[in-house]
Measured scan of single mutants.
Amino acid sequence: MSRESDVEAQQSHGSSACSQPHGSVTQSQGSSSQSQGISSSSTSTMPNSSQSSHSSSGTLSSLETVSTQELYSIPEDQEPEDQEPEEPTPAPWARLWALQDGFANLECVNDNYWFGRDKSCEYCFDEPLLKRTDKYRTYSKKHFRIFREVGPKNSYIAYIEDHSGNGTFVNTELVGKGKRRPLNNNSEIALSLSRNKVFVFFDLTVDDQSVYPKALRDEYIMSKTLGSGACGEVKLAFERKTCKKVAIKIISKRKFAIGSAREADPALNVETEIEILKKLNHPCIIKIKNFFDAEDYYIVLELMEGGELFDKVVGNKRLKEATCKLYFYQMLLAVQYLHENGIIHRDLKPENVLLSSQEEDCLIKITDFGHSKILGETSLMRTLCGTPTYLAPEVLVSVGTAGYNRAVDCWSLGVILFICLSGYPPFSEHRTQVSLKDQITSGKYNFIPEVWAEVSEKALDLVKKLLVVDPKARFTTEEALRHPWLQDEDMKRKFQDLLSEENESTALPQVL
């Protein structure tokens, strides 16, 4: 008996699950189920560990084997000379395990699969056993689809999209007709009724959600790893209520002995410091949205989908001078704002400069500016000194954290500008005749005249004003913003236009 009217009423009120309206889709043409990776026989039982391990490696599972009696060998002398080797079968990115008779397991190899009674669906509900069930008529011709799209860092995100009359449910929550939600590992998919569980979705590319604290899981769906560094790992996640993407940084307390840091400095109150950081608001710094204190720290951040500045300059790639100017102007505005709010970044580098898009002209935002507030000064500097390429001379020669101030950030900005303009770092371990530390503390950077011949004198002058060993003589952010190279009204107008595109209400910060 159909429950279409009941569920449609529920759909009209929406769902609290991570779902959002989605535009129309072009329906895929039908194809045989076997060619799409559906096993030839149905099963109602969950797999054992041996079955799972075989399939996850990209080899055929026991459900897909063919009797050897149906095959015969071709003698080598009868092999056609022009026969080309077969292409290897792509490894599946996800697996659906059937929970009921009449449904088959599915190895997801393609990027898009339609499910329903219509014969054009890649996964067609046409098993005779299924057709005899009382629920068969409640399934729509095109009930739902599972697909994946390219996300940040060229990774993939799996989604389920509801197109049914009676509802598609993920972990008992209604997706909603015309809406989608991301699928995470071990999600249970039910059709027409929330208790009519048909599939379990296994994402073969992500970790299980159960490793994360419950308070975090209640608000966010964790997904793929976006990156990792000395101070922690960053994962893509989704807000459950809105389906908006965020980035979540995970900082290990054990790695940084944060408990010991608190004992050594009783004034170090991470929760208080995070609340201060959350109040920071500038178009060129990453917004801190939320914070969870569990076995590790979880910092929920605004997501930038254009990648890191590092990706644009790695491998001796240089940027156009006009692009360097647009990016560097924004970096200076961001660091100036942090300094005005009493925050020294201490870890400025291309990896911590994020881009809003893949376009050459785009907004940038500074991230990882609050680590000293979370990890403690000593722990952070011990970590950073392991990779000193961007560290100021006074940091390398000081004991502990004494003896330096916000000028350290201006040195790091000078190193970043040098790399963007030239395509190579000013200080490098590859210069074996002088140690990296000695290069930095003496201010002897690697200047290649033929490379810098293409760079304007004004740009080079600003680099020199920032890479000054004496912090008292080094340019401040205010002085850098007043430098002739940055007195470019076309560049500032472009920045204002980019801000307006992102948010019509965002105004250009005042600069002296």
Results as ranks from 00 to 15, higher is better:
Thr89Asp: 01
Ala98Asn: 13
Ala264Asp: 08
Asp162Pro: 09
Ala98Arg: 11
Gln209Cys: 01
Arg195Asp: 00
Ser12Lys: 05
Gln69Gly: 02
Pro85Ala: 09
Ser164Met: 02
Pro85Gln: 13
Pro80Ser: 12
Leu191Trp: 00
Ser57Phe: 13
Ala94Met: 15
Val246Met: 02
Gln51Glu: 14
Gln69Met: 07
Asp208Pro: 12
Asn166Ala: 07
Asn269Met: 15
Thr272Pro: 15
Trp114Ser: 07
Ile38Tyr: 08
Leu60Asp: 15
Gln10Cys: 07
Glu122Cys: 10
Asn166Val: 03
Ile189Gly: 01
Val150Ser: 14
His54Pro: 10
Gln11His: 04
Arg217Tyr: 02
Arg262Lys: 05
Thr138Phe: 13
Ile251Gly: 15
Asn166Phe: 06
Pro88Lys: 06
Val211Gly: 02
Thr205Arg: 04
Val246Lys: 15
Lys131His: 07
Asp162Ala: 07
His163Gly: 14
Arg217Trp: 14
Phe125Cys: 02
Asp218Gly: 07
Gln10Glu: 09
Ser49Gly: 12
Ile251Lys: 06
Glu127Tyr: 10
Gln20Gly: 08
Ser49Arg: 07
Gln83Ile: 12
Arg132Ile: 12
Arg3Cys: 13
Arg148Trp: 15
Gly151Glu: 05
Lys245Pro: 04
Ala98Met: 12
Ala94Phe: 11
Thr45Met: 12
Thr65Leu: 03
Glu87Pro: 11
Trp97Pro: 07
Asp126Asn: 15
Ala190Glu: 15
Thr43Phe: 05
Ser223Val: 02
Lys179Asn: 15
Leu99Pro: 06
Ser164Asp: 01
Met222Ile: 07
Thr138Gln: 02
Tyr220Ile: 03
Gln36Asn: 04
Ser53Ile: 15
Ser40Phe: 04
Asn269Leu: 11
His143Thr: 01
Trp114Glu: 12
Gln20His: 03
Pro88Trp: 14
Lys141Gly: 07
Glu84Val: 07
Ile160Gln: 01
Val234Cys: 15
Gly23Glu: 12
Asn154His: 05
Ser228Gly: 11
Tyr136Ser: 03
Val150Phe: 01
Phe147Tyr: 02
Ala158Cys: 08
Cys243Lys: 02
Asn171Ser: 13
Glu127Asp: 07
Lys224Asn: 06
Thr272Gly: 10
Val7Leu: 07
Tyr72His: 09
Gln10Ala: 06
Pro182Leu: 03
Glu149His: 03
Asn186Ala: 06
Ala237Tyr: 02
Gln209Phe: 12
Leu106Asp: 00
Thr168Phe: 00
Glu233Gly: 09
Cys231Asn: 15
Asp218Arg: 03
Phe199Arg: 02
Gly178Glu: 12
Thr272Tyr: 14
Tyr123Phe: 14
Ser252Asp: 15
Leu71Gly: 02
Arg3Phe: 05
Glu149Phe: 02
Thr168Ile: 02
Tyr113Ser: 03
Thr43Ile: 08
Arg137Gln: 01
